[in-house]
Design a protein around this nucleic acid. Structure first.
Length: 191
DNA sequence: ATCCCGAGGG
DNA sequence: CCCTCTGGAT
């Protein structure tokens, strides 16, 4: 079953979300306690030696990039936002190392805003269900919001990612266990 | 041996 | 659009 990312604050969510690419939540959860014990707040990480951070996040994949990225992110956050995680998509995306997906996750999960994070899991789910032909994340988010008008989109966002990861898997989708099987028009379903 | 898949850069 | 970065899962 799918594990979720552990975090205590919006700042921690931002960091673990950056670390979560190309690895498992389990792996991120394994390294993050030491990371946040060593560098509790943005100024601490901003002043860290990248090599020390590399040693901590090693095994999460892309570790050199990620270590440099979160140190630069911390510095950027301190310099331009007083160390406070912003609450708008525009400001979040301005941060170094933060793209639309990471920004949407923070907006929805940390701040409870009605954003839907569109990562490759969500794109894949939308595509297989025939909900959208677009690969454009903005379009996918619009289509999903139109499909679920005035719902709890921040909760839907988390559920969609988990569903894509745990059920509508890229390589081995569990179609026989999927509740949407009867409604799903995906032509390449496994037996 | 191949695939995973976000952000930045070309 | 394409490519690169990485260890882990399969």
């Amino acid at each position: 079953m799918g594990t979720a990312l552990d975090y205590r604050t919006p700042w921690e969510l931002l960091v673990v979300t950056v670390l979560s690419a190309q690895t498992t939540d389990e792996m991120v959860n394994k390294v993050s306690p030491r990371l946040f014990e060593t560098y509790p707040a943005p100024p601490d990480l901003a002043g860290a030696k990248v090599a020390d951070v590399e040693a901590i996040v090693f095994s999460t994949g892309f570790y050199r990039q990620k270590a440099a990225a979160i140190v630069a992110l911390a510095a950027d956050l301190v310099d331009r936002f007083g160390g406070v995680v912003p609450q708008t998509l525009e400001e979040l995306v301005e941060l170094k190392g933060v793209g639309r997906k990471t920004a949407s996750v923070v907006l929805a999960e940390a701040w409870g805003y009605p954003a839907i994070a569109v990562d490759t899991h969500v794109k894949r789910v939308a595509g297989r269900l025939g909900l959208t032909s677009a690969t454009d994340p903005v379009k996918v988010e619009q289509d999903l919001k139109a499909l679920y008008p005035r719902q709890r989109w921040s909760e839907l966002s988390m559920r969609l990612i988990q569903f894509g990861r745990d059920v509508c898997d890229a390589r081995r989708p569990a179609c026989s266990e999927c509740e949407l099987d009867g409604l799903c028009p995906w032509p390449d379903k496994p037996e």
